[in-house]
Design a protein around this nucleic acid. Sequence first.
DNA 1: ATACTAAATGAATACTCATTCAGTACTCGT
DNA 2: ACGAGTACTGAATGAGTATTCATTTAGTAT
Lengths: 217, 217
Amino acid sequence: MLAVADLAQRRNEALSARTRAAILEATIAVIARHSLSGTTVQLVAEAAKVAPGTVILHFQKKDALLMAALEKVAVEFEQARRAALDQAGGDPVKALEAIIDVNLDPKVSDPANVAVWYAFWGEARARKLYLERIGAYDTMSQESVDRFFKELIAREESGGGKQRHLNAQALALGFSGLLEWQWQEILVSGRAYDRVAAKRNARAYLASIFPDSFAPD
Amino acid sequence: MLAVADLAQRRNEALSARTRAAILEATIAVIARHSLSGTTVQLVAEAAKVAPGTVILHFQKKDALLMAALEKVAVEFEQARRAALDQAGGDPVKALEAIIDVNLDPKVSDPANVAVWYAFWGEARARKLYLERIGAYDTMSQESVDRFFKELIAREESGGGKQRHLNAQALALGFSGLLEWQWQEILVSGRAYDRVAAKRNARAYLASIFPDSFAPD
DNA sequence: ATACTAAATGAATACTCATTCAGTACTCGT
DNA sequence: ACGAGTACTGAATGAGTATTCATTTAGTAT
């Protein structure tokens, strides 16, 4: 009898889950086009081909809907990033190359995703929850970049012994900042953005600093 | 008689100019605390100690008010930057140091200013005017950083002849990105942000890349 | 003092938008 | 094909907001 209840529940969940997913996707699209202040339940409902009441039925509050949209985008970023780093094993060279590829992957850095990300940054100071979610991602990603730079610097110094004084933290910040800057470009240019040139720039950065590990283009 | 009229006019203008300035300042403060979507004419009026009607009297539309606030912040950035670069003469070393100092000057990078800046970035995709204003600033600032890096690389290569392959554009992007990243930190940390450490990082970046021109800390 | 003008007020207006809920349309096991 | 129950609808509600404008206040010249 419990099993029956469960089954009934599950069937309905599968159905409503599709609607829920459609609403979430629509929310992201609407935020990307209209920003947070222009995002209304009506617009989301229209984009999801659903009645406004349905949106609230699934998310209770508009704010919960927005938070769910942010969560979806953040989780997608994190998963893509983690997959890429796993692929790289522990190798810092491969890892940094993978980070470039992930950050500029057309799916990950789709203009809509990027727009959503910045939309929440813009509201982050007023809404603690947004700030926490976004900040957590940025801190995490920055820490791993930091680590890879430290490893590479140690490696190159022990190798050639050219006596350079490379500051890992500063150079890692520069790397992350460079990628961040590319995202801003995506925000500005949208579909017209040149990903190939961007990747070339990012690799050129690494090649400039670690000529032994990264070939110049 | 024209002189008399002028005088009368001028007195009144001075009066209303004070009010107008108060409203603008209040707007920036409110945006910083409540973000764009939470900024209401009521809140601005209260912060400026003025009636809501007065706000509209001076700016006609709420959107014009917001645009004026963005303009004020952008112009402040530009003026501080230009003054610093003038001070540096044409010397790229001094210029880059000046750029660091300006970007992390407590007045320029006041958390309120930074918050306003990001608030508009968040809405930039939905509002062409915001995007144009912000994009113009970023493009301009990036171009000058680019130029300084080119000069420095030419200088160091002709000097030591260590045969490094430094990519000016990539490293300049890293530099701008690093500073940008610091601003995000200001957004997150507010008053608690450690400007001294940030400047040290930025200088360490330059010292890592141009050891002949910048002393390591 | 008085008259005149510009600046400021704030209650009233005319929206917009999130949220509710009574009712309808589905879905699915039987 | 049916009935039980869920997912969904969308018009109605009301809270909140930008903007208006008739009136008051403040500043200046005569």
